[in-house]
Amino acid sequence: MELQLPGFGQWIAAFFTLFVFSFLYKDNILYRFAESVFAGVSFGYYIGLAYINTLEPNLFSPLFGDFSSNWSLLIPFAFGVLLYLRYVPKLAWISQWSLAVYIGYYIGVNLLQRLHGEILPQTKGTMLPLNVEFGQLIGNLVVIVGVITVLIYFFFSSPHRGPLKPAARTGIYFLMISFGASFGYTVMGRISLLIGRLTFLVDEWARPLVATVFGG
């Protein structure tokens, strides 16, 4: 396969990657520059995303395209605009209406989701059979004991004294194993990202560049 000189995009991506990695030596102006670009571009990106994926297709297009069928969209539009009244000191209290509607609605959704989608299925999933082969029995007992002891640990309404004390202690042990596993996954995820960036630098930027300039 013939290698081509990296494109402008690859150069930009490679420089930003190196700028960020320069922080490993010490905090410096190149890193701060990359960090600022990242912050600015992120804000801009989410604005673009909010407009392209939400406001344009769900608000502006229906409103301007067929107002008679979509006039009700003026309600969320008005509530959205009301949010900005917080910048008008005398009318700032009105901006609470939008927040109240938004938070209130998701509180209702949250209540149902938590009860129906988490508490009930997770509790059902913990009621495991004990008349199974030995290996599975041990596993099922670990899950049952683990869930109960972790919940006892999280039960702060009464002090962990008497029989609750060893149970809460066992719950902590389960939590520690789980946090260790999560930590292990996080480390692996970060390292795979690092490998991805190094692979990009070598395969998509440095190797084609060296091969094109020096031949190879």
């Binding site: 997770q122 899950v143 004991v145 683990g146 919940l151 999280f154 389960f174 939590l175 194993i177 789980s178």
Partner: peptide, 10 residues
């Protein structure tokens, strides 16, 4: 097993 138990409790 242990991880599922802890996560479920959480």
């Amino acid at each position: 097993f242990p991880n599922t138990a802890a996560q479920r409790g959480i």
